[in-house]
Amino acid sequence: MKPRTLVTRFAAATTVVMAFGLASAPAAVAQDGAPGMRVKEHGTRVKVTGPGFVVKLSKHGLDVRINEDRFGDPDSGYPIQRQTLDLTGRPARPFECENGTYTVKTGTFERTFRFSSTDPRPLPYPPEFAAGFPGILTPFVGVIKGTVTNAEGETLNFLISDLAQEVLTEDGFSATAPIHGLFIDGRGRIRDHISLVGRFNSGPNGENATYRIEDRGTCRQTADLPYGPDSKGVLVTGPIFVFPFKAPVTTPRH
């Protein structure tokens, strides 16, 4: 059987960053991203707190703690789901960063998530995206660990947290989707780091939708994703994407 290229929020990518201006959010949408998730960054150290989980990332490791009794919304009736993907030998687009290009050599992708609804996300989320994620993820916790090689043949360790918190209510839809990662050389030094945080808010039926990706890292590129014409030229990092559609990109100073 021909190996299949890994495409989830672990997606394909090309090489050019597409940056767009960010319009001010209308007064009807006051929330900035989804409630229930808090992202703290201090340099390359990251702590993300969500409903029933805490994720901490530093060059010393990636620590994930999940409280099953509080993970997502137990009253929704949807169970906690877990999946582990073996990345070793699986085709995956390299990470293109400021200090190197890294190809996955070995690794695992552990995913823990709970759906809160099977209702569709609003546009501009492509309808085709729902085929792979047929429900609102409240939340999604992905942990990727392994080794990569660069163009010089050097092997580095990498740690990535791939998270999402989506909330759909009668008042609208919101999402926070942070991706953070580190590429660490044999001396324990951080060679490159990923910091992409997506935020989406809209009213009912996608009204007054505002969205953006905050980029504080050194790894990014663009890709044509397999979710229809509106998923072309999407900002990604290696084989991972924030949103399955084009979004404005900002580079906050802090």
Rank of each mutant, 00 (worst) to 15 (best):
M1V: 12
K2R: 13
T14Y: 12
V17T: 13
S24V: 11
P26K: 11
A27N: 12
A28C: 13
A28P: 01
V29H: 00
A30C: 09
Q31H: 13
Q31I: 11
Q31F: 10
D32F: 05
G36L: 05
R38C: 03
R38F: 10
K47T: 15
F53N: 06
F53I: 05
V55P: 00
V55L: 06
S58N: 11
G61F: 03
G61D: 07
D69H: 14
R70P: 01
F71W: 04
F71P: 02
S76C: 10
G77R: 04
R82D: 10
Q83L: 14
T84I: 13
T84H: 05
L85T: 14
L87M: 10
T88S: 14
G89S: 06
P91K: 09
P91Y: 09
R93C: 12
C97K: 02
N99Q: 13
Y102A: 04
Y102W: 11
T103K: 09
G107L: 07
R111W: 00
R111E: 15
T112E: 05
R114K: 09
R114I: 05
P122M: 12
P122G: 11
P127Y: 11
P127E: 13
E128F: 02
F129W: 12
A130S: 13
F133H: 14
G135Y: 03
G142F: 02
V143L: 13
K145S: 12
K145V: 14
G146D: 03
T147S: 12
V148G: 02
A151M: 07
E152M: 11
G153N: 09
E154H: 13
T155W: 03
L159Q: 08
E166F: 04
V167M: 02
V167F: 00
T169D: 12
G172Y: 06
P178D: 09
I179S: 05
G181C: 06
F183I: 09
G186C: 07
R187W: 10
R187F: 10
R187A: 15
I190P: 02
R191M: 11
H193I: 04
I194R: 02
S195A: 15
V197W: 01
F200C: 04
P204T: 11
G206T: 09
A209Y: 09
Y211V: 03
R212I: 10
E214P: 02
D224P: 02
L225T: 09
L225E: 05
Y227R: 03
Y227P: 05
Y227M: 04
Y227L: 08
P229I: 06
S231G: 06
K232P: 00
T237N: 05
P239K: 04
F241Y: 15
V242G: 00
P244D: 06
K246P: 10
K246A: 14
K246H: 12
V249D: 08
P252I: 04
R253N: 10
H254Y: 13
